[in-house]
Write a protein that binds this DNA or RNA. Structure first.
Lengths: 209, 209
DNA sequence: TGGTTCCGGAACCATGAAGTATCGCATTAG
DNA sequence: CTAATGCGATACTTCATGGTTCCGGAACCA
């Protein structure tokens, strides 16, 4: 986070908050293109039409910049306060994926791929886990499924924690390994043939026999 | 691949094939620890107790070395000719995971995480896909499921291609993002509550209604 | 034995990137 | 107006490292 000066002492030209988001967005772009190690501060500055001094005044190191950029990206993704409520779990799950533009999703997933290499280089990063784009998505799935369970639409003993990971993990696999985004057809097949059956009454019963 | 000299012309000291595997193994180790970009030829040579000259006599560049090391690792993983046949699909799926040691699996998955960053740097690598550890695992799942289908144990219309990706993609997610291997408890839950229900008669029928 | 090739180890060099400093101009408080 | 700060741009320092080469010694063939 860029540090704010004490307003009482502030005298000269003020920092342009516009520059913050421009640099952050440029960081995401470069990260998606060449990964964390391929990302140089010069490239980011060039892309953002910013001077390196402007960047280093805000973020003391490259790692801080990338971490903040990822957090910025995460904040734009899923709003846990405004989840869809279509009446059916199936509709909710499909709607959760709906609003995002295809190209935008692709950009985010590629950036996530770039972060993977950072995990093994920045010590202590793997433990916090707050770099992952998929985590809020899993949280959203969990909320939707628990709501369906409360409404009696799925089995009371259903393993929500497990089911909520299915679609995000598939998305992660495709993004990081296959370098492809999930399309709508695949999403529908996952919901109908995998996720919903896993939550249904008889599947849960069968696994306990 | 290290190039063999023409045996007719061979005169001096012979190459020690032992050095090949030592260097390859060391490459996997370093890759698992620091990723592709963190991997330097000096680190590998040090780990393998080898001189850099010995390495460059065999692999002209760092990329070739890593690619060969991954291929070497893949060859050790799953033998598609000797798949388990326990009589039930459930038993087969669990047995497929059985033989590998926990620590070994962890090492392989971490190495795979190191490869991810290589994908965006080596052009044309993402298309071939032959770097992925998960691909042979998906293939093995597919074979087992198709066999079960032929034996009439699962729905004839079951989406095998989709179901075969569930466990490997979850493994990929955990390895690359969470930095954890799949334990046996999770595997059992996945098989019983997700994979098998997805292949069952009524799940498939429900998705076609 | 002698020439050839391999070995581990180390020195070497060119490239590139992180982070700093500086310049000229713009903006704002007092 | 003036001093202080932010801005883009660029030059600079410092350092890591990928790839190459050389060395002394060992193994191998004729």
């Amino acid at each position: 986070m860029p540090d704010l000066e004490n307003p009482a002492t502030a005298r000269g030209r003020k920092r342009d908050p516009n520059r913050d988001v421009a640099i952050l967005e440029a960081t995401i772009d470069v990260l998606a293109e060449v990964g964390y190690d391929g990302l140089s501060t010069a490239k980011v500055a060039d892309r953002a039409q910013a001077g390196k001094g402007t960047m280093y005044r805000r973020w003391p190191t490259k790692t801080d910049l990338v971490l903040d950029a990822v957090a910025h990206m995460k904040a734009q993704q899923i709003d846990l306060e405004a989840l869809p409520d279509t009446g059916s779990l199936r509709g909710d799950l499909l709607a959760l994926f709906q609003p995002h533009e295809g190209a935008q999703v692709d950009r985010v997933l590629r950036a996530m791929a770039g972060v993977v290499s950072m995990i093994s280089q920045v010590p202590g990063l793997a433990e916090t886990g707050d770099y992952s784009i998929f985590e809020p998505w899993i949280a959203a799935n969990t909320v939707l499924m628990n709501r369906a369970k409360a409404r009696g639409k799925i089995a009371p003993a259903a393993d929500v924690a497990l089911a909520a990971q299915i679609i995000p993990s598939m998305a992660a696999y495709r993004a990081l390994i296959l370098r492809m985004a999930i399309d709508r057809d695949l999403l529908v097949r996952l919901v109908d043939q995998v996720v919903l059956p896993a939550l249904s009454e008889d599947s849960v019963a069968a696994s306990h026999s």
